[in-house]
């Protein structure tokens, strides 16, 4: 079929000028088959972010969870333990306020707050913009704290090297099966606030098992940023990943 007018001439005629009668005033319907990826622009930007961070030797870690799971507390605890080994920087994502950024600034760390307004997730373009506001030459480990939401952030690659999902013991042990999409890009899974386990009915093995069903190679941790139990293996994981990146 002629691609230009759909007149039914054979395939070979496409590349040749050919004569036929069409009424220039007439119109017709045609189907344009496209299959254009709606996430392509985000994925391209994410690849660019990753390469840019790599050039600076920065390990970037995207933290995703519901609101109140302890993403900021985990960043504070990691910083307190690793400050003599790695220089930490933070990008904060929230719908409103810069309260999280204030907490990070109080630690003396470089931080940039993204206020998304009505958007329920960070995307690669927002992270790219934030990178312009951070002193990349003096950061080794960059946390990107996503908007508190267990659904939407899962679809957007930000260009981080590691993507982690956090679930606190107070949220219930049934959440992994209910929110599987958040694990799409995830490399690790942290159960947080483990110091509260004696007070809630939460079977820690269940979400870890279900998370590994979703992603067989997922690294899992159970920790408390407050009591510091279980923090050691998470810190070692971050150090090993940073060493592998710059090796």
């Amino acid at each position: 079929m002629c691609e230009t007018c759909g007149c039914g001439l054979p395939e070979e005629a496409k590349n040749h000028a050919h004569e036929h009668d069409h009424d220039p005033g007439r119109t017709h319907r045609e189907e344009a088959v496209l299959y254009r990826n709606l996430l392509a622009a985000n994925e391209a930007q994410a690849r660019e972010n990753r390469a840019h961070l790599m050039e600076h030797g920065i390990l970037a870690v995207n933290l995703m969870s519901s609101p109140g799971t302890g993403k900021t507390s985990l960043i504070e605890a990691v910083t307190a333990s690793l400050s003599d080994q790695l220089r930490v920087g933070v990008i904060e994502g929230d719908l409103a306020t810069d309260r999280d950024a204030e907490r990070i600034r109080a630690l003396g760390l470089p931080v940039w707050q993204i206020t998304t307004g009505s958007t329920c997730h960070l995307d690669a373009a927002m992270v790219h913009e934030a990178l312009h506001h951070l002193p990349l030459e003096s950061i080794d480990l960059l946390f990107v704290e996503n908007v508190g939401n267990l659904v939407c952030p899962g679809l957007y690659d930000l260009g981080c090297h590691l993507n982690g999902v956090l679930l606190s013991v107070t949220e219930g042990d049934d959440k992994v099966a209910k929110y599987p999409v958040i694990f799409k890009y995830a490399q690790f899974f942290c159960i947080t606030k483990s110091d509260l386990l004696p007070y809630v009915s939460f079977d820690a093995a269940k979400p870890q098992r279900e998370a590994r069903i979703l992603k067989g190679d997922l690294k899992t941790f159970s920790l408390s940023a407050k009591s510091r139990e279980g923090m050691g293996s998470f810190l070692n994981y971050l150090l090993a990943e940073r060493a592998a990146l710059t090796a």
Binding site: P24, T27, R29, V33, L34
Partner: peptide, 16 residues
């Protein structure tokens, strides 16, 4: 993935 799969368009026939 999520895609724009296709469009059904009204187009002018090319001049003869």
């Amino acid at each position: 993935g999520i895609f724009l799969a296709s469009l059904e368009l009204e187009v002018a026939e090319t001049a003869g």
